[in-house]
Write a protein that binds this DNA or RNA. Structure first.
Lengths: 205, 205
DNA sequence: CATTATACTGTATATATATTCAGTAAAATT
DNA sequence: AATTTTACTGAATATATATACAGTATAATG
């Protein structure tokens, strides 16, 4: 359903920025001028695609009748997210004893939904801009791709690394710090469980 | 602010309710239907009165070009924080044209209050875990100490660096990347204005 | 007391705007 | 290989919309 293309994202951003700036939505012509299109139909088709995919609603016949649809974000809907610190060996990540505290934050704060914040230990991902005590917004999923920053569990130890599947039986978990070594996981012999992936980061100095 | 009449208040309320309901402002005809007027000029004259008194702004020629002017809604007092992208030379950081969009976030999200998010360009602070396109939560202040990550303005260029006051007349702005050089500012000769300091960071992958 | 602001109806119109139709072309999907 | 989706240009048009103009009437203001 929700696969937005990069151009459609540009149009969606353009609408949001226009509303923030002026207080009302743009016309087709406004979007064209903003994004460099030469035909109003360019904007029109993108708008219809965004409407079809459920990102916006268009009031038929009305001028500037565009409204952005915010999923559960019925404006200002917030939620409490747990902050996970040191995860005890063997225990489920979200077990109560692992929750340090909670952070109140809007549901639509990051691009996609997430489930908890993980407090980072060590500097194995420092070249990716992830420092000690940073809070990684973790989305629980096993659908990860090469290059994703994943939260993985090997032998009851939780680690944050770049995911890189080399073959059907070999996954490499790569650090972003030359002082650390790549973890090679033989899927036939070792057990690898993907807890989720990073979709954002929060740092409080 | 001048005195608003009861009818003008009705029109103003009508506009706000319409925006809340549809996401965009009403036309003259919409207002007439809503409030029972029989001529579009009824709405028109009320709108012009509201404009003259400073309650709304009307974009000339634009359809639905009404925006409600709300002093309480000016950035900082609520939970909407502006995201500042490329700052044009010479213009104030929070000038409207520099605001890319806004982010809704709790006031107490970071340890101390802050004023806006600055979108980072370049990698001069990468060893401090600040990467391109990261959003730095900036607190507007000139009260900075050595070691703080400051947002400074030198010759109309905005830069993010570690602050280090060496003496009464020498301030060094240190990058966190060996490929960049420390900026030495002679306070007697050069002008240095401290916009504020970083009190947190937000990254959205 | 003249003037201005408020509060309307009613008509008219230039133009702002959505929207359709006719094409082209590349990429993705089936 | 055929079809759909994406991504555009360019022109045409019905209509949605702002806005001016012509009135009427009451209340406030200087």
């Amino acid at each position: 359903m929700k696969v937005i293309t990069s151009q459609q994202q540009r149009v969606l951003d353009c609408i949001q920025i226009y509303i923030n700036k002026t207080g009302f939505p743009p016309t087709r012509a406004n979007i064209c001028k903003e994004l460099g299109f030469k035909s109003p139909n360019s904007a029109e088709t993108h708008l219809r695609a965004l409407e079809k995919k459920g990102f916006i609603a268009i009031e038929s016949g009305a001028s500037r009748g565009i409204s952005i649809i915010n999923d559960e974000n019925s404006y200002g809907s917030k939620d409490n997210y747990p902050v996970i610190g040191l995860v005890a060996a063997g225990s489920p990540t979200l077990a109560e004893e692992n929750i340090e505290r909670t952070i109140n934050c809007p549901k639509s704060f990051f691009e996609s939904k997430f489930d908890y914040f993980l407090k980072v230990k060590g500097l194995s991902m420092k070249d990716a801009g992830i420092m000690e005590d940073d809070l990684i917004a973790v989305k629980k999923t096993t659908d990860v791709r090469n290059g994703d920053i994943v939260i993985a569990r090997i032998d009851d130890e939780v680690t944050v690394k770049f995911f890189n599947k080399k073959s059907a039986k070999l996954v490499e978990l790569e650090p972003a710090n030359e002082d650390f070594e790549t973890i090679k996981v033989n899927l036939e012999r070792d057990e690898l469980s993907i807890e989720g992936k990073s979709i954002g980061l929060l740092r409080r100095n």
